[in-house]
């Protein structure tokens, strides 16, 4: 049953993934880490609409409250 093999570095869908980095790990990093400085164009990365649509994979508290936007379980 649901025992997934470790995601190999280069196994993502080639159509979506020019680089084979696991998306969920990549989003962990580009959204939640890296240097944050004040920008001119402030987008609400921590606010609900984006969190709901893109980070349900990352945030259990959110994914329990709102329906998953990816009916197929996401790109990975």
């Amino acid at each position: 049953m649901g025992v997934a093999d470790p995601v190999p570095w280069d196994a993502s869908d080639p159509g979506l993934a020019p680089i084979g980095v696991p998306l969920v790990d990549l989003l962990d990093r580009v959204l939640a880490t890296g240097v944050v400085i004040s920008g001119d164009v402030v987008i609400a990365i921590a606010e609900v609409p984006l969190v709901r649509l893109s980070l349900h994979a990352l945030l259990s508290s959110v994914s329990r409250r709102v329906p998953a936007p990816w009916t197929d379980g996401g790109p990975l």
């Binding site: 649901g2 962990d28 994914s63």
Partner: peptide, 14 residues
């Protein structure tokens, strides 16, 4: 430590 991924992330069942 980063925030753990929630249940069901990317179809994950573990």
């Amino acid at each position: 430590r980063l925030r753990p991924h929630g249940p069901g992330a990317s179809g994950e069942r573990r």
